[in-house]
Each structure stands twice: as structure tokens, then as C-alpha cells.
């Protein structure tokens, strides 16, 4: 990696100040940024290590929602009694991110801010209709994910927490890329009263909602309701592991499985 300055602020306000430098980068678990630095694909002037900011940590219930601090590691979400009781699908998703090492280091805020199209968390954020809290505002999930590795976050805006509404039912299913074990196609479904959300990750350049499936499930919450719905392959990814057509097919399969898992 190239040389960089290293800062470890204690407050969000200090971190925001440090990130005013457009070439500085925030780091939490570092599971995406560090490999990029080692490959010299990224040359930040400074790393702003968020791990010393106490206010970014922790899981708490707030009314009809679970609020999870940005620095919360995947393993903490996966094993949280609070999360398991309130939104078991979210704990399940977290328990299946990467491998043990990734789950022990990677954080919710890091994953969602990075918005890797093949990451798990964006599917839950969008599929549950969560609200993203930042250093300066609150952003609805539907307005947050803008494109591949792109979000609504401003350069010096820090994701501080995510507020996940507690829903009636939710489920997640994914097919892993055989090499990277990132998501090749995943679907997160949720139902809260008459409100149904279906979020697709891995398959396209950015997590997206599947409107046709949402409509079908609102009318009939069952795997069969989505079994006949074909995802258009047009905008999906093609790589050496699978074509857009294959991913489109997997979206239907994973949607069925996610609904079945939600019960």
C-alpha cells in the first residue's frame, strides 16, 4: 500500500472534520478498503479510523424498530438476542456474510456505505425499508442506494446507524458466487401489514426492488406467488461465473426460498 496519514477520532464531529479532506477515507472493519490498499488500487491521503467512536456502537430497540450502530460487527448482529427476536431474518443474513473472519471484523456501516452490489446488507436495508441515519440527516433506504458502489452519502457524511423497522415477516435467500462467496443473486422479502418489499442483491449493478413480485406477494404471500414471475435479464450482471439469464433465473428461485424462509 501507499503511505497515508492515520487518524482515530473519538467523536463523529471530529471524524466529519477529518473527512473534509476529499482524499481522506473512512475505515471501520476494513474488509473492502484494506485489500484495495494492499493492491494499490486506492491512494487515500489519510485513513479516518472510526473504531474509536463510542456513539457508533450498539444495538437497541426504539419503538417499533431496531437501531443498529454503524460500527456494529456482523457477528454482533448475528448473535444479538434483540435482533434474533425482532427481525430473525436480519440476524440470519448477518450470520451468513462471508466467513468467520469477515463477520468478526466487518461492520454494518462499512458494508452499507460501500454498497457493493454483491454485499448482503443492502438487501436487508432495502428489503425492510430501513432508515439510514447519518452525521447530518436521515435517509430512506429507497433514496440511499444510487448505483454500483454509490450511495446518497456526501463525501464527508458518515453513516451513524440504521433503523430497521420490525416487520411481520421477513426472509432472505441467496446463491453465492462459488469463488468469492459474495452474493451471485439474493432476495430479501418482508411483509408488514399490507406492505410488501422485495429487494434483489448480487444480480444487478445495485440492489433493487422487484415491483412485480411485491405486487404478487401482497395479493398472496406464498412461494408459489413468485414462482412464475420472471426477472428481466436485461440490466443484470454477466461474468465468468454466470450469465445475466442465469442470475435472472436465480432471482425467482431465491425469491421463492426467501418467502418460504419468512414463513
Amino acid at each position: 500500500m501507499y503511505d497515508f496519514a492515520y487518524h482515530k477520532p473519538a467523536t463523529v464531529a471530529d471524524a466529519v472534520k477529518l473527512l473534509a479532506d476529499p482524499d481522506a477515507k473512512a475505515i471501520s472493519g476494513g474488509h473492502t478498503l484494506l485489500p484495495a490498499l494492499k493492491h494499490r488500487l486506492n491512494k487515500p491521503s489519510a485513513l479516518v479510523d472510526l473504531s474509536g467512536i463510542a456513539e457508533l456502537k450498539g444495538i437497541r430497540r426504539a419503538g417499533n424498530a431496531i437501531v443498529i450502530g454503524a460500527l456494529t460487527r456482523h457477528v454482533e448482529v448475528a448473535t444479538s438476542a434483540e435482533v434474533k427476536a425482532a427481525i430473525p431474518a436480519l440476524a440470519y443474513l448477518a450470520s451468513h456474510i462471508g466467513d468467520v473472519q469477515v463477520r468478526n471484523r466487518g461492520t454494518l456501516g462499512g458494508s452499507v456505505s460501500n454498497n457493493d452490489p454483491a454485499a448482503d446488507y443492502p438487501a436487508a436495508v432495502l428489503g425492510l425499508g430501513a432508515t439510514i441515519h447519518t452525521s447530518s440527516r436521515k435517509i430512506a433506504a429507497d433514496d440511499f442506494f444510487l448505483g454500483m458502489f454509490t450511495t446518497a452519502l456526501e463525501p464527508n457524511e458518515i453513516l451513524t446507524a440504521i433503523e430497521f423497522p420490525i416487520v411481520d415477516k421477513a426472509g432472505y435467500a441467496k446463491m453465492k458466487n462459488p469463488a468469492s462467496r459474495y452474493v451471485m443473486a439474493g432476495v430479501f422479502v418482508s411483509k408488514s401489514g399490507g406492505n410488501v418489499r422485495v429487494a434483489v442483491n448480487g444480480a444487478g449493478p445495485c440492489v433493487f426492488r422487484q415491483a412485480e413480485m411485491e405486487k404478487a406477494l401482497a395479493a398472496n404471500w406464498s412461494p408459489e406467488a413468485v414462482a412464475g414471475i420472471k426477472q428481466a435479464a436485461g440490466d443484470l450482471n454477466t461474468d465468468i461465473h454466470g450469465s445475466a439469464e442465469y442470475r435472472a433465473h436465480l432471482v425467482t428461485v431465491m425469491a421463492k426460498r426467501a418467502v418460504a424462509a419468512a414463513g
Binding site: 462459488p178 469463488a179 468469492s180 459474495y182 461474468d239 465468468i240 461465473h241
Partner: peptide, 19 residues
């Protein structure tokens, strides 16, 4: 699978793509 593209670039050049 070791995969090269038509220009001879190694597409399966890391553990992300070589299983």
C-alpha cells in the same frame, strides 16, 4: 477454471474469481 479473455487478460486472476 483458469479463464483468459480474447486479449489474453487473465480473468480468473484472484481468489475472487478462481474457485
Amino acid at each position: 477454471a483458469c479463464v483468459y479473455d480474447a486479449d489474453g487478460q487473465l480473468l480468473s486472476g484472484s481468489m475472487m474469481d478462481y474457485t
